[in-house]
Design a protein around this nucleic acid. Structure first.
Lengths: 347, 347
DNA sequence: CTGAAAGCGCTAACAA
DNA sequence: TTGTTAGCGCTTTCAG
């Protein structure tokens, strides 16, 4: 239609750059990929031409020869409403991005309904269409078939989960949730609490199981009897129900595996006529934006999701490129606020 | 290297399918794209061959000829922590996905730091590398340059924002936030409130401005004087500060443009010695997972983010394909809970 | 050090 | 109705 508007076509190709620089296409390719075989002088001229034309190599043309997609995937099998309540996820994405930008790769995100099959199908589709070179595994379950699936699909994989875990050689970027729970128990024990209950998330998940284990270990380390615990499934309803159950055992403190459950628990305690923190101390996990603005503000564990995302992406890109890097595991931090205090003197 | 492992190569190409079916590559292409030129019999045979080999066309090869990327983009210039507190976003992604799956497209997500320039650069990069065919625009600002940018880049665009808005021909999939605010005001007015204050979000955003306007309109519609309002910037700190300010004007109810701000406001009110809802009624917006589990539970406005996401994706794919569809705008719903009641009789 | 040419997997315009 | 062929934009041999 409007082909003769004047200059170069809308999206320049490598040929346009070559023409402008007065060299061949091959020279342009060598020059811009920092490969030997071009004089520094020519390289500079080519660089300028590319800059002038605002040219970027077509990702698809590249992908065809190198059979690399320059993209990584993340399939999330979560109830959308569940996804929302996880500040970890958002930070994680941000961290991932910083690394991907340097690698000239992008993130393909697929949110599928719940269900392992949908999740597997998501990865399969991305793999078969050669859309991605590797993938992140989040929400790892105790008996997770994704590591095996991804290997079968020929995709690099990096899992995010409890530090030190290992499935099938799939490396884990550790989140040291356990350390956070331990700090919470230590904080409470230091205040004089002895009956510290625990509300776990969903036992099927690795990061849930590791938090429970950390609570048990910390209790033992402080010479305290492992108090009662109940599953809250990371939901508000679950947290409330678990709290009702645990309250019968008269704990002076409850450690929750998530803020949402802690918030729901706080309401339950209040309805039961308990004052927080005078009668009952509460700690959460995640440091939701709401946590600091509750009444009382919630003592909780804050992870560094951006660092975890960056570490995971670093590791994934290294695997794709066949490089070796040693994974790091950022530590979480206990944020002490108003929901914890010394236990009632009476007991 | 290990070329003679026995059967077909790891990832089959169209040539493998053609060979197996005993036809040419061209025939395979026609057959599997449901184009005329192949007998039904042959088509069936080809289909079976493709099935046997578990073949999918390489997205990159396709992209090269049709200059279609079979992907759409979403660039988010938000503080990662801000992203987390928005249940709308998660549902939106879920809704988008349902439509993309049918179109054989994927979503490329880019979370950049805050700043308009980073945001623009994100879209530019995706466009120049021909990574995407179109993009979603979220968090539209009153003077947003992205519609112009995307047109310049040759990308289809669909914005998510107040119903009926229009920038530069970029279609909007409306979220009827205004209706939600109106319902909240109506609910409060019906309970007998007359002094209804408002905490808006960040005035620069369209969806913030439209909620403020809706509050004004609703107040007028009920013959009430437009009470005081203040900006809370969608953050907890902001919501708390705005509430402190507004409390001096002795409202009997406060409508908030987000749950987070409302939650922070509830704490401020309690610290000021006010009982919610006996002394002060509060409404939020979003229906965060926490909202139902506060004490008292928060009356709030729930959108249908999944429907919005699906509608936006539908519209975007239609634009890319050059089809025409009429956008729909799902309505939000007021969820009445315990944070609202009749105003104190005294006043 | 540079240029020409082949080919990645696919589609579309051909010729048979 | 079929099979053949010429590229899409790029990288990578291989000669010059």
């Amino acid at each position: 239609m409007d082909e003769q508007s004047g200059g170069a076509p809308a999206t320049p190709t490598i040929a346009d750059v070559a023409r402008l620089a007065g060299v061949s296409k091959g020279a342009v390719s060598l020059a811009l990929n920092d490969k030997p075989g071009v004089s520094e002088e020519t390289r500079q001229r080519i660089r300028e031409a590319a800059e002038t034309l605002n040219w970027r190599p077509s990702i698809h043309a590249r992908a065809m020869l190198r059979s690399r997609a320059f993209a990584v995937g993340l399939v999330l099998a979560r109830d959308p409403r569940h996804l929302a309540l996880d500040p970890f996820f958002a930070g994680f994405l941000g961290g991932v991005q910083t690394v991907l930008a340097d690698s000239n790769s992008v993130l393909v995100l697929q949110v599928v309904g719940q269900g392992e099959e949908a999740e597997a199908e998501g990865y399969r589709r991305l793999a078969r269409e050669r859309r991605i070179d590797g993938a992140f595994l989040l929400d790892v379950r105790t008996d997770d078939r994704r590591p095996a699936l991804l290997r079968e699909l020929g995709l690099a994989a990096v899992a995010v989960g409890p530090d030190g875990a290992d499935y099938d050689g799939t490396p884990f970027v550790g989140v040291r949730d356990g350390d956070g729970i331990r700090d919470a128990v230590e904080h409470l024990a230091g205040l004089g609490h002895r009956r510290i209950a625990f509300v776990e998330g969903a036992p099927a998940y690795l990061h849930s199981a590791s938090r429970l284990a950390a609570w048990r270990d910390a209790m033992r380390a402080h010479g305290l009897p492992a108090g009662p615990h109940a599953a809250g499934h990371f939901t508000g309803e679950g947290g409330a129900a678990a709290t009702r159950l645990l309250l019968e055992r008269r704990p002076t403190a409850i450690v929750y595996a998530s803020d949402l459950m802690a918030i729901a628990g706080m309401s339950v305690a209040r309805e039961a006529g308990l004052d927080v923190p005078a009668d009952l101390s509460l700690t959460g996990f995640d440091d939701n934006p709401e946590a600091a603005h509750l009444h009382p503000p919630l003592t909780t564990v804050r992870q560094d999701p951006v660092a975890v995302g960056a570490a995971a992406a670093e590791l994934l890109m290294a695997r794709i490129d066949g490089r070796r890097v040693t994974p790091v595991s950022p530590s979480p931090r206990l944020i002490v606020r108003g929901s914890t205090a010394a236990p009632p003197a009476a007991r």
